[in-house]
């Protein structure tokens, strides 16, 4: 089911000044339930702007944002509830921690929703589990955590609000490979359990190929391509033409094909590549 829908959305920063900047043009997208949508594109292509439109922090210069079929710009629309239902984790969320303890910080969102103490406690523990934050950190000051742990605490803070749509702006930016894996893996298992809508913003094709069901590729403020991973990654040339990358394994399969091995190139995970190659050389996968 479609949760969020953007119709002909344009967004311009600082309209009417010399600093005027068209950030988004002609955006038509849908965010669906029970699906991880990957939003991908170069730095500066408008990803962060787009996600702020989704929970009513910004309003489109023209066009409409619909949540559950209702236009959020309508008079009397309850933006506060919208922000409870559409949870947004900003880029570098670790800089927004402020409470005395990690536990209190994660509790900030649920508290603002007016939940009772036991429910808040339950949600905090559950969210912490998903992001891999151990309970021994609960009573620690958030400022004493490592960068990666702060990030986890901040993400848990939004997860604990149990939103219908969870949006994460570059949740893995600036982390080491293991940290990336753990955070993205945690988000993945969270979504698979909750079956809600999750949007992950990233500029890593590699990560998106692994974790998303659907992809929206942006370029220069416009939607450049959208579809499921296979559809998008099968158009390698189109992606490469605007300087976007494809997963390494896709590149590898293309290389293999150009060397004369007749393999499919719309492959974006290592497992799939392995199966494909094995089937071509007539072997059986036994490892």
């Amino acid at each position: 089911m479609t949760k969020l829908k953007l119709v002909d959305v344009n967004y311009t920063y600082s309209e009417g000044t010399p600093f005027r900047k068209d950030a988004l043009r002609n955006i038509n997208i849908e965010i669906e339930d029970n699906c991880i949508t990957g939003l991908i594109g170069h730095t500066g292509c408008g990803k962060s702007t787009l996600v702020q439109l989704l929970n009513g922090l910004l309003f489109p210069t023209s066009g409409e944002v619909m949540f559950d079929g209702k236009n959020i710009k309508e008079k009397g629309y309850d933006l506060k509830t919208l922000r409870h239902k559409v949870g947004l984790v900003f880029q570098y969320p670790e800089y927004q921690l402020f409470e005395d303890t990690v536990y209190d910080d994660i509790a900030f969102g649920p508290k603002n929703m007016g939940l009772d103490k036991d429910e808040i406690d339950r949600r905090i523990r559950e969210a912490a589990l998903f992001v891999g934050l151990e309970e021994r950190y609960f009573e620690v000051s958030p400022f004493d955590l490592s960068g990666g742990q702060k990030r986890r605490a901040a993400i848990a803070g939004i997860m604990a609000m149990d939103p219908d749509v969870l949006i994460l702006d570059e949740p893995a930016a600036g982390l080491d490979p293991i940290g990336r894996e753990e955070i993205l893996g945690g988000i993945y298992s969270y979504q698979r359990k909750r079956k809600n809508a999750v949007v992950i913003v990233s500029h890593s094709m590699e990560d998106m190929a692994r974790y998303s069901d659907k992809l929206i590729v942006m370029n220069g403020g416009e939607v450049f391509m959208q579809g499921n991973c296979r559809e998008v990654f099968s158009e390698t040339d189109k992606l490469l033409s605007v300087g976007l990358d494809v997963p390494q394994i896709t590149k590898f399969m293309r290389e293999l094909k150009s060397k004369g091995v007749d393999v499919r190139t719309d492959i974006f995970t290592v497992d799939e590549a392995r199966a494909e190659i094995l089937s071509k050389i007539g072997g059986r996968g036994n490892a």
Binding site: Q52, N55, L57, K80, R83, H84, G87, L88, V89, F90, P93, Y95, Q96, F108, G109, N112, M113, G157, I158, M161
Partner: peptide, 13 residues
């Protein structure tokens, strides 16, 4: 501005 937005996203009023 950014921090205010981020806290608004967490339901701050």
């Amino acid at each position: 501005d950014k921090i205010m937005c981020a806290q608004k996203a967490r339901g701050a009023d």
